[in-house]
Design a protein around this nucleic acid. Structure first.
Lengths: 151, 151
DNA sequence: CTCATGTCAGGTTGACTGACATTG
DNA sequence: CCAATGTCAGTCGACCTGACATGA
């Protein structure tokens, strides 16, 4: 038992890293959303899958368009869609306008999932708003939008 | 050639997802930092490795403490440190106060790496400040700090 | 005996690139 | 012939949990 100052000091008194500050809320929210899906009877759906639902149009949407909207490759989106389809959340119907393409459409089960996701988002934003105040919450969104638009 | 409205419409006119807004700047910055390291002769170092450097004390730091500071498990941090060591950026010396522990210390090469990282961070913050203005840049940091503290 | 430190082994998530058949 | 769509195959980065030897 040494008499030195404890090496296992408390939390870092260091300048908080901006990268970590940006990453953490996203990670926490994703984990919570996954948990929420599981609680509501959809244990096979994780955050990225739920996220896809918001990009679906009523008429059906191509994988390539979904990929564009979610800012990922078509392959990665294809995987998400395949997973969602295999669990009955979406269906893929041929696009009458282009026989290469398929239109991804939400099923009733998918709508249910999306409702849970929207509810979660609303809750999360409410929690953050309570934490920050409405004014700073609005600032946060505005600043992030400009930042993303600019990079 | 159908006369329908183009399915491959431009960028999503949808309400921007707060999650994506948070994730993207981090992803972009990480990719750029990796690229920068490569340009400066350190192709084997990626963003998380460089990130470790800022958590090192001059006297040397335990893996467990590093993990705590970076908010990850000791195993994950152990991997990062092992990688850094195998490329000569840090060295591990036995902790005289505790024979289980090893102190991770930066080498001269590590200091060089850290300098590049700091330079990059400064550049990035300057870029963002130019994009947002100094006032909103300060707001962003403050808001994120409070948000992270609260969740 | 219990707890902390670090490492080993293995698994998972969420992406990526390249190649390809099909169709426009 | 060239471009776009979606899928298959393989790879990777960045984590995770569990088990363990060593030592406080």
């Amino acid at each position: 038992m040494s008499s030195k100052p404890p090496t296992t000091a408390a939390a870092s008194p260091r300048p908080e890293n901006l990268g970590v500050l940006l990453r953490e809320p996203f990670r926490v929210a994703s984990a919570r959303l996954h948990e929420r899906f599981a609680e509501r009877g959809h244990p096979d759906v994780r955050a990225p899958h739920g996220n896809v639902m918001q990009f679906l149009d009523d008429e059906g949407t191509r994988v390539s368009v979904l990929a564009e909207r979610a800012q990922m490759t078509k392959q990665a989106m294809g995987e998400l869609v395949a997973h969602l389809e295999s669990h009955g959340y979406v269906e893929r119907v041929p696009d009458p306008a282009d026989r290469r393409a398929k239109l991804v459409r939400s099923t009733a089960k998918g709508n249910e999932l999306y409702a849970i996701a929207r509810e979660f988002v609303a809750e999360t934003e409410a929690e953050w708003t309570e934490l920050l105040g409405a004014e700073r919450m609005r600032q946060l969104r505005g600043i992030l939008e400009d930042l993303n638009a600019g990079l």
